Computed example of a mutant assay.
Amino acid sequence: MKNNFTLKYTFLLFLVSMLVCGSSELIAQQNIKYGMLTFNKAVNVSGKQRMLCQKMAKSYLYLVENPNDMNAKRDLLTSKIIFEKQNGIIAQNSSYKLTKDRLAKVDGIWVSFKKLIESNPSYDNAKKIIDLNTDLLKSTNDVVSAVIMESKGVVQNDANVLEDADSGESSLELKETINIAGRQRMLAQRLGLYYFANQSTLKDKNTEQMLKNVYHELDGAITMLLISDFNNSKIDEKLAIAMSKWEQIRNNQDKLMNQGFKSVEMYKITNDLTKAFNAVTILYEKVKV
């Protein structure tokens, strides 16, 4: 009888330990997710919000001079819809107070920004958009930073469980690389925005310097991506495509600063550049560490 009791007791302990281990593994698996998303996806999606707010501003400024361009009208409408939808997705999947607070700030600025981009294109409202767009950009960028900070806490906890600190550091480095690549999408749109803001009808004392700043930031970040440890053959290929798009501007800096590109040409080049860097960002998102 005693042996039977010992066997049953040992078996029960085994079952309990299996359940505890299983629960710990489940918790660890849950912790590496941003709600229903991976953290890599969350960094990508939140980063895309920066690009969309700049694309809406660029499209509006372009439409002031080109009111009948249906592609630009469609870009403005679809960007607005996607921006609102993705903001909701980011909010629904976050459990982090800082992220939610920063999303609330985005929503506050968005109310005013949305009214402007929904108005009939005019010079007066275009100037207001030029003034407001950087506030919206900063608030969306703050959300990306919060998502990365949220992932940092999760990665540290997960590294403790797995006793793999190197893996945790690599995971954070990858998220920063996704952030940099995603920021290039935004800078491409911001370049177009300030190209149009720098035309004589909208130009002020700051627009030319802003255009120069965006140009140099975009150019400098390309070098950082080229030497990334996460690059593979597919990423190298997509980076080469993005660089070929960038060379159209880089080789024509005088045209950039002196309104030498036709409006429709600059509109298309910056959209193509955004698409090229979006392809790079998606590939970084899928890298396994």
Rank of each mutant, 00 (worst) to 15 (best):
V16A: 13
I249Y: 05
F83C: 01
M243N: 11
F39K: 03
S167T: 13
F14T: 07
K127L: 03
M210W: 06
S24A: 10
A181G: 02
E25V: 12
R102T: 06
N258I: 02
K48V: 01
K212V: 14
R250A: 09
L225T: 11
M70L: 13
I90Y: 01
K127P: 00
E169K: 04
D236C: 03
A159E: 07
T99C: 11
S24C: 11
N44H: 06
I89D: 02
L63M: 13
E84T: 07
A240Y: 04
R183H: 10
T140K: 02
N179T: 01
I117F: 05
N120Q: 13
N206K: 12
L193C: 11
M210G: 04
I282H: 03
I227F: 08
L218C: 04
S170G: 09
M18A: 03
E237L: 11
V64M: 08
F196R: 02
S171L: 04
S228I: 12
L218A: 08
D135H: 12
L202I: 06
G192L: 06
K212R: 12
I82G: 01
Y215D: 02
I249P: 08
A159C: 06
V289D: 08
R74L: 05
S170F: 03
T223Q: 14
T177F: 00
K288L: 05
N66M: 06
L193M: 13
Q253E: 15
Y60T: 06
S200C: 04
L52E: 02
L226G: 02
A42I: 04
R190H: 14
Q30A: 09
G108F: 10
A159Y: 07
Q92N: 10
G47Q: 01
R250E: 10
F261Q: 09
V280F: 12
A91I: 13
N125G: 04
Q209R: 14
